[in-house]
Amino acid sequence: MTRRVLLIEDEPHIAEAIRYILVRDGWSVASHGEGGSALEVIRREVPDVVVLDVMLPGRSGYEILEEMRADPDLATLPVLVLSARGQSADRALAEGAGASRFIAKPFANAEIVAALRQMAGA
């Protein structure tokens, strides 16, 4: 059974890179590049893990995350938050909103893969 990951990232190059490394690692990858409709996509796709960028057009990653945590169906879905802001304050903000993991950009590819494996396994 392939593990399914939903990638919500507006930067096409970054989305492409992540998609490549995850597919290589054996994941099934769906991706979406906009914040406003992200929740619908999550509910539709029902992924095992979500990779969520913070700065999205339409709606910020934190808002999406908070709504997910408020929704019983999505409350426990593992979410990896990616942020171009790597300060500890940003990390705290992400965890407060209910992030399962937080990784700052730019990241090491292996770091993403390891994190997702762990989150999906748990």
Binding site: P106, F107, N109, A110
Partner: peptide, 12 residues
Amino acid sequence: RTPMTSIRAFSE
């Protein structure tokens, strides 16, 4: 960070 992220990811 955004271009750097792409650069790093694709370099790897």
